[in-house]
Every structure is written in structure tokens, then in C-alpha cells.
Nucleic acid binder design. Structure first.
Lengths: 117, 117
DNA sequence: TACAGTGTTCGATGATCTACGAACGTTCGG
DNA sequence: CCGAACGTTCGTAGATCATCGAACACTGTA
């Protein structure tokens, strides 16, 4: 049954592994700090903040790493409650969980978004 | 000349290497996030926040590391603008740079101090 | 059905970091 | 002056992390 696998993955009908999300409310402070301590991840967050929700796909970010490394960074951001992802055909769309993350860690995201004036 | 060495260390009359401090205003965001990403250092910060200025010496903190490791953690906190130290005889007194650090990174210190309710 | 585009996973590598014991320097009390 | 107390520095060992290339899986199109 395809539904058994889909259920394990948290997807109803997709043939693809759904991205694993963590609610910002469930994120430990340490996970948030570790995630944002990396300069590449902070760049991703800032670029994402400058776009509308679901506008950017993973491959459109300007960071000096390969797609393999980029994929790992997105995984860390998801597990820190900073990012939400949705599949759209072969692409994966991204959304910054701005309000939710700010509610969990007030001020933290603002510090990142204002880095470098 | 004792003064030459003292000048290089930034001390006028002490016979001891003065601790190197960094002003919170000069601290990059990354240094602050990296410093606070470590659980032992967050414990030090929280314990320090629960005491008055210059009350605690380095050896009085309840963390499960040796004094060598502890000394390194204090060094990191100093360079992140979180800590100020002053020598008092053989001991080294500590002070949390609460207002200054909060002015540089609004909200960040509060997140650490409120960790775990 | 083949193929190009997108993104993930795997395994390995190199750098970084935490941690420790040992040795050292300094300060103060006996 | 000797020794205990305090903290730093050194060298090392182990773990973790960022990074990469290669292989894989899925989607949409020609």
C-alpha cells in the first residue's frame, strides 16, 4: 500500500518524502542558537525574509556551497522552527516562519535580519 | 622594565596578566550566538545573573567541567562582551555586562535568562 | 519512454570545539 | 620562606560539524 508509506511520512498522497517540520513552540533555545550561529544559515534566513512566502525555491539562494550542503542547512533550519517547506512539482518552496518564531524567541530573528545594518 | 610588560598587558601596576575584554558594542552577532550556543556557558551566564556584580569568583560556579575547561569558557564569554573580570588577590571576580550587552543585542540575554521558565 | 531539472542521502575528509591532566605563575597565610 | 589556593596555558584526545562528490529519487516535458 502506498498509503502506509505515505502515512509514515506524514503525507496523504504525495510520492515523495515530505520535509520534516518542527513547531517553533517546541524548539529548545539551544537549537535556535546553534542554527543561527552559522553564517550561511543566517544568509538564507535574511534572503528569505526579503521575499514573499513560497516565492523562493531551494536552488535560488546565493550562498557559496554545493546543493548537498545547502540541503543540510535547510534541514537544520526546519528543525529549528525557522523554515517551512512545501513541494511544488520537482521544486521545493520555502517560507520563513517569522511570526511564529518571533513569538517563541522574541527579538532573536530581528537581530539576524538587522545584521550588517 | 616591569612597565613595558605591564603596558603590553594593559595593566598599570598588577603583576599578573590582565583579562582581555571586548566591548559589547564591538561584538559581532556571530560571536554572541556562538558563545551562547553552549549549554555550559549559558549556565554560567544565568548563575552570574543571579548574583550581584563582583560577587562570584571563577571557582564558585556549579558546572560539570574542570577548571581548565572553565577558564576557556570564561575567555569565550569575555570576548563575546558578556563578561567583565577583575583580579582580587589570587581570585578573579566576575560581573555580567547585562545592560551593555542588552543594548547591543536587545532581547538576546533575556532569552537565555528565561530558559527553563 | 527517455531526458533534463531539482533536491536528498550517503560516505569521506578536514576543521573546529569541548574536555582533560599536567605544568606553571601568582597571591596570600602560616 | 614555604606551601596551599586560585586560575591560566599547553598539549592532546574525542566528538561534532561543514563541506564535498557521487549516487539516487522524483517531477514534468519532449
Amino acid at each position: 500500500m502506498a498509503t502506509a508509506r505515505a502515512a509514515a511520512e506524514g503525507t496523504a498522497s504525495g510520492h515523495r518524502a515530505a520535509p520534516v517540520h518542527v513547531e517553533p513552540a517546541d524548539v529548545p533555545l539551544e537549537a535556535a542558537l546553534v542554527a543561527l550561529a552559522d553564517p550561511v544559515r543566517r544568509t538564507l534566513v535574511r534572503e528569505l525574509a526579503g521575499a514573499t512566502d513560497w516565492e523562493r525555491t531551494c536552488g535560488t539562494f546565493d550562498v557559496p556551497v554545493t546543493k548537498a550542503t545547502l540541503s543540510r542547512h535547510f534541514s537544520v533550519l526546519r528543525e529549528a522552527g525557522l523554515l517551512e517547506q512545501r513541494d511544488a512539482g520537482p521544486r521545493r518552496l520555502n517560507r520563513l516562519r517569522r511570526a511564529e518564531f518571533d513569538a517563541r524567541f522574541p527579538g532573536l530573528l530581528d537581530l539576524v535580519l538587522r545584521e550588517g545594518e
